[in-house]
Amino acid sequence: MKKLFSEEDLVKNLSLYYLNQHLKKKPMEKYHRAIDASPLHDREKYKKKAEILLLNSFMHHFPEVTFENLTCESPDFIAKFNDKKIGIELTEVINHLEMKKVESCLNKIFRQAEILLEHEDTTKYRGVYFLSFHTHLKFDTAEQQKEIISDIYKSIKKNKVFGCVKTIRKSSHRRNVFITHEYNMNLFDELCSEKILELIEKKNEKFPYYDRSVDECWLVIVSDMNSLASRYTFIQDREHLKEVESPFHKIFHLENLCGNITSIK
């Protein structure tokens, strides 16, 4: 049976984290090996690996935390901290819901362009390519998507923008071809504190169903800054976060690019 996610796919997914210089490679590799050795389905293994990556910046703030159970469900992870058994529930806050579908389509397009380039000559084209696009980009039909793939392929092959590609920037990568979005932030791209509070409220409702064997349960809310749908520049009305009521023992908001963390409770 063909695996849904290959090792090469995982390497591509990790590339941005390696470039950010935040990845604690040795413990991360250990945790990924533990997930691989579990009886989880390949799709669930991939999901867990992506989740533990989002916690990488969290581990910089809490280096004493060691994970004991990486494959549980409610909460997502069980760890040890200061001789306590800690349940860690991880959730991502989406800042731009309208971008979620767009980003999903683009990621599929990126993967098709990567396959084309790797089949032609992986050694010649390997690297991390950061792309931005003209605003008129449309991919409602298979033909439109095929045209975008072709424009990306030609831009990387010729090392200059072509068609719908507005800018292209390359960083080195020793193994594969990896295509992602250029990291451009809007100066006034706020994340409304209400979105964080609504997310906490939803998690509060599920709290009674979490593992009762833990001494404490922490909620870690992540803004995945490598995602168009999740990124932000500042939290609007941050003071409202002090009003939160929750059965979680601790609540944090974390952004995974620079590793900034806010203690909400």
Rank of each mutant, 00 (worst) to 15 (best):
G163D: 07
Q144T: 02
S227Y: 04
D224E: 06
Y210M: 12
I168V: 03
K195T: 03
I200R: 01
S150H: 11
V177T: 01
K157W: 04
D189A: 09
I149G: 00
G163W: 13
V161K: 14
I148R: 00
V222F: 08
F207V: 08
Q144M: 02
S155I: 06
C192H: 15
A142F: 04
E216Q: 15
L191V: 04
K203S: 09
N226R: 12
T167S: 11
T180A: 09
N226C: 08
V165F: 03
I168E: 01
F162Q: 14
Y153L: 04
D189L: 07
L197Q: 06
E216L: 14
V161P: 14
I179W: 02
K195N: 03
S150E: 11
R174F: 06
G163R: 05
K146L: 09
N186R: 15
E201Y: 10
Y210F: 15
S213A: 13
Y153G: 01
K206Q: 13
K195H: 03
I168W: 01
Y183N: 13
Y153F: 09
K206V: 10
L197K: 08
L219T: 12
E190M: 12
R174G: 03
N159W: 06
H173R: 02
P208I: 06
E201T: 10
E198Y: 14
D215Y: 10
E190K: 15
E201A: 15
K158I: 07
K160V: 10
V220H: 14
I149N: 02
A142T: 09
K166E: 12
Y153E: 03
K206H: 09
P208L: 08
I221C: 13
F178C: 15
C192I: 14
R174H: 05
R169V: 11
D215C: 13
I152M: 00
R231S: 08
I152D: 00
V165N: 00
E205W: 04
N186E: 15
